[in-house]
Design a protein around this nucleic acid. Structure first.
Lengths: 112, 112
DNA sequence: TTGTTAATTAACTATTGAGTTATTTATATG
DNA sequence: CATATAAATAACTCAATAGTTAATTAACAA
């Protein structure tokens, strides 16, 4: 809601705006936490390139890093995805005529 | 849900990732639709710069343009904000233990 | 110790992107 | 018609970013 939170959100969007990083985050969400090396095939790029993308995501607070011996295990930060959802929801008057219809959207999601 | 939709979402995130563009979108949502000229003071930049930001937002589907004589009136595209919200919601298992708690979050939002 | 694996950092290149001023397009108005 | 207003496009500069290969750091294993 405040200026600082908005800045963080824009940073978050910027991090997710890169196709490779979006693919990394999608992969981590659908397949669960994995190492930097396991993420190498999300795009046809080198290990250092993936490493730098992960650094951007980490600094934006989109992913968390967990050390396991030589491996670094990455996972999606729930708070980040939640923050994006909250942003959309607080602006919902722009995509919904009334709060009543929100239930319908949620019902649709459950039906998927 | 499909690959094309994901690409669009990443484009959307990229558009919102720039601080100036995020400010433009926030302004349009809180104050309602307005002309390119009226948006000039969202940042200390020239009119052509604002114009180009609006073009990026329009091409990403984040804003709509409406012609009114010489003026171009811009407004936030509800579908874009909704799409972002849906993305977050479909991934909610990463930020919520169960669907039950979703109601609590929505209650919090209503209480704001 | 020595070698292997995992990942990051360093150094560099090429492209993209955001900004500028000047110009063009289009509409309204004296 | 001539001029003013509104916005976009053109042409350009500079900084940021995404990619590369080579080198470094760190932990495990023979």
């Amino acid at each position: 809601m405040n200026a600082a939170a908005d800045t963080d959100l824009a940073t978050c969007f910027a991090a997710l705006g890169d196709p490779t990083r979006f693919a990394i985050v999608t992969r981590l969400m659908t397949e669960g936490p994995q190492s930097a090396g396991a993420l190498l095939d999300v795009a046809d790029i080198s290990a250092p390139a993936v490493s730098r993308h992960l650094k951007v995501l980490r600094q934006a607070g989109v992913v968390h890093q967990q050390v396991d011996a030589q491996r670094r295990i990455y996972s999606v930060a729930p708070e980040a995805v939640q923050a994006i959802g909250r942003w959309s929801m607080t602006k919902r008057e722009f995509w919904e005529g009334s709060l009543d219809r929100l239930a319908t959207v949620l019902d649709d999601l459950q039906a998927e």
